[in-house]
Amino acid sequence: MKIAISTSGTDLQAPLDQRFGRCAHFLLYDDDSGDFTLVENSQNLNAAQGAGIQAAKTVADSGAQAVISGHCGPKAFKVLDAAGIAVYPCQAASVAEALDLFKGGKLTAAANADVEGHWV
């Protein structure tokens, strides 16, 4: 299964980005092989609105089945939910730490968005 983790960096030691919609990349981790690829999200950094929606579509198109991020707002959650992707809010410092928590069953899938939506 593939897991998309929001990050400002490019490797497993990079910080987990608390923002889902406006993170620089998603690190797409394959937990069968242990390999990862990077999915660009910087096109959303300056979006006037709807960054979360587009980030969710990007994640859905990447084939990920789970997302680990700091927070997820209502519009992004709705798109991820429609795509059948589970959202795991996480406060880990790094991507590697987040993956360890995930693999250890320490993260709980969110039933709803965990933060309010915003406009701009």
């Binding site: 609105q49 709807g50 929606i53 587009q54 579509k57």
Partner: peptide, 8 residues
């Protein structure tokens, strides 16, 4: 405006 998105 990201007001419509195709998913699934």
């Amino acid at each position: 405006f990201n007001a419509i998105v195709t998913v699934s």
